[in-house]
Structure formats: C-alpha cells, structure tokens
Design a binder for these strands. Structure first.
Lengths: 203, 203
DNA sequence: GCGGCCATTGTGGAAATCCGCAACCGCAGG
DNA sequence: CCTGCGGTTGCGGATTTCCACAATGGCCGC
C-alpha cells in the first residue's frame, strides 16, 4: 500500500529459497511478497501490484516460463527475472528474446540479484508512466466522433481546410468546427501540437 | 556485388565448420563469405558489406564476443548470430541482452540456422532503410542555418510567427522568410508535415 | 574590393485560419 | 413529444499565414 506498484514478487516452490529471498530484499528495505506457486500468485489477483517478478523456472504445476507466457498473453507487461538451477542456453536465450529482464542461475550473487531487481523496478516505473501517458492520449482519441477522426487524419496529412472540405463533401465552415472540437478534445492549440502529441506511438 | 549489403559473413577458425556453413548457405542460394578469424575480417575492410554475421565465440586472437563489442563501439550495427560449442548461460544472456540477434549452440540444426540468418538479413535490411531515412533527415537539418533552427524549434513548439518574432527580437516578416526557407530545405509544405517528419526520432 | 551567403525589413495583397453567434436536421432515448 | 448530441451551414470579422518584389548590412573567401 505504501508502494502500490513497486513491490517485488517472488515465486518459488522451495520454502528455503523463498524465505532467503524474502529476507534478502527486506533486509535492504524493499517491499517483497512471496508465493509458493504460479497458481497462488494468479489466484490472489495481486499481480497488478507487482513491479518486478522473480520467478523460479522449475516448479510443480505451472512453470515459471508458462507463467511468463501467460502474463504476456494477458497484457501484463512487467519485468521478470528468471531464477533457475537447471537452465540451459536455449532456454535462457528464448526467455531473454521474449522479453525477460534477466535470467540468473542458482546459486546467485545476492548483491547482483538485488541490483538487477532494482533496475527492473526502475524500468517498470518508466513503463508505467509511459503507458499512462499513451493511454491518456488514447482516451482523448476515444472521445472524438467518427467524423472528427476523419477530419483529424486529413489535418495530420497536412491538408488545408478547403481540401478537406471538398474531400469530405462538406463546407469549409464545417471542417473548421470539427477542427476546433478536435483541438479542444485533444487538449492542444494547433495542428502542430496535435502532430507532436500523436507522434511517438504506433497506430 | 549482386547484393551489396545482403551477404552472410561467417567467422570461425575451424576450417571444417567454415566450409560446412559456406556450403550450407550456398546450397540454398545465399551469398556467403567466410573468414578464419575476427582479425581477418576487420583487416579486409569488407565489414560494411555484411548483412548478417555468424560468429564463433571461441577463436584464437580476438574472440567472437570481442569482435561483437568492437563492432558496437565503432557504430557497426548489424545482426550477429553467435555460434558456440562451449557456451554457458551467463554468456548467452549477456550476448542477447547486448543486442546479439541469436545465440546458437553446436551442434546446430541446419534449417534453423538458415532461417535465423535469413531473419537477421531481413532485419538488417529494415535497419538499413530506416537509418537511411533518418540520415536523410539529419542531412536536411544540417543544411539549416543556426537562425533557421531557432525558428524551427519555436514553430514546432506551436508558437505563432508574431510570438516567435518578439521572442527572437525580430519582425514577423523575418520569421516568415525563415519559415519559408525551413519548409523548402526540409522538403515539406507545412508545419504539420514538418512535425511529422521530425517525429519518430530522438534528438 | 567583389560576389555570395545570411539575417534582416518593408509594402501590399491574396489566401487561410480562427471564432462568436445562430440555426437546421436526423436520430436515439426518456 | 421533447431533449440532447452530432453533423451541418451561414455570416461577418479578426488574425494569421503565405508570397512576390525589393532592398540593406555584415561577414567571408577569392
């Protein structure tokens, strides 16, 4: 609750490892929650509060890799650090290429693991704020009517009002009205600002 | 010469591997060049013609990883597929995180390696064209005078000519002239287009 | 010193954008 | 039936942008 999305989650079916990791992070002042299995974590519904997931690969039931895939498929994009005592190269390569934050073999170096986890948390905070910004834009776009979107597309294409007007088969005045509403709803004051805001995001 | 930047380069100090890989790719109709060492490749000055580098890690002299780092430091950004018979997990993870395209253990599957190499070539072509586009923009920006850049920054900030004028301590007319020149040099016809062109690139 | 590039300014007009005020129409919902 | 929303249009005026034509002054290299 103090740090809603900055908690470190640890999933490992080995009690000893779980306790050791919990102690490790807590001793350095970081909020940590531990889970004995992937299912336990998912069932808790707490996944949204996770800022960094330290995941054992070999577990009974759902494996770490399976949980990783599940999270991806369900849009939960958060940094995952895999922890394993039986990893091989192809597995590690696959995990990293699929976007895992790191892949660490046991036994691991305490300091390094903490550093990686903190780096992961920092990256997650970055992502969260960026996503928030992007979503704010999407919400504004969602407020636009269909007609306004048509006009906006053409404005962004650099077309003049008169062109847009004849293009859509309406008068210039109508385009002007739409244009004004677009600027208002999108929270900008000119076509240039609009272009800036909409830049840096793939449609 | 037929495909200047689409050649596959193979670097391995094992003659047998080199020949086998050369044969493998050529038998499938892909241009390949092989080198017995990292130094041989660098000395040849042919690196710019490479579209995909298949690199053995353990070699006499400069290792595959060292060559990889060297290329990075010298701005040669091209997809590298590491090939190794003695790789460990940390090495693989490190290589991938540093941007290696893939990390394959020997013995490898012929079809998979060819597929990966082709994917790497495709990615490289993408990168090359994108880089070319970005450089074209940079060259246009380079043509702008200092004053024009100052004006452009303000235009992109959505400021009106009158504001820019008082801001820079000149008359509106002067700003208009600069503005026109900017559009001309940048090859656009409006401020919106300018914003579009300059979007999607970090300053 | 001359020519070229750059920054600057003016005049004056055409074209485009921006806006408040007002209104009509069609359609969905209460 | 009345209301609200979205799309549409008109009028008229203030602002802003865009441009052609014309010109001055500074700096730099030949």
């Amino acid at each position: 609750m103090s740090a809603p999305e900055s908690q470190i989650f640890i999933v490992d079916d080995d009690d000893a490892i779980r306790d050791a990791l919990g102690w490790l992070f807590r001793s350095r002042g970081h909020a940590v929650r531990t889970w004995p299995s992937a299912e336990a974590l998912l069932d808790s519904g707490e996944i949204a509060h996770c800022g960094c997931l330290v995941l054992d690969i070999r577990m009974d039931g759902m494996s770490g890799l399976e949980l990783f895939d599940w999270l991806h498929e369900h849009g939960h994009t958060l940094p995952v650090i895999f922890l394993t005592g039986h990893g091989d190269v192809p597995m590690a390569v696959g995990a990293i290429k699929q976007g895992a934050f790191d892949f660490v073999e046991k036994p691991f170096n305490d300091n390094e693991l903490v550093d990686r986890a903190l780096a992961a948390l920092a990256m997650h905070r970055e992502q969260v704020s960026k996503r928030a910004a992007l979503q704010a834009i999407e919400e504004r776009i969602a407020q636009l009517t269909q007609r306004e979107i048509e006009v906006m597309e053409r404005v962004l294409a650099g077309q003049m009002n008169k062109v847009i007007a004849s293009d859509l088969g309406v008068t210039m005045r109508t385009v002007e009205v739409h244009r004004a509403r677009i600027f208002e709803k999108m929270g900008v004051r000119s076509a240039v600002e609009l272009a800036q805001v909409l830049a840096g995001r793939k449609d």
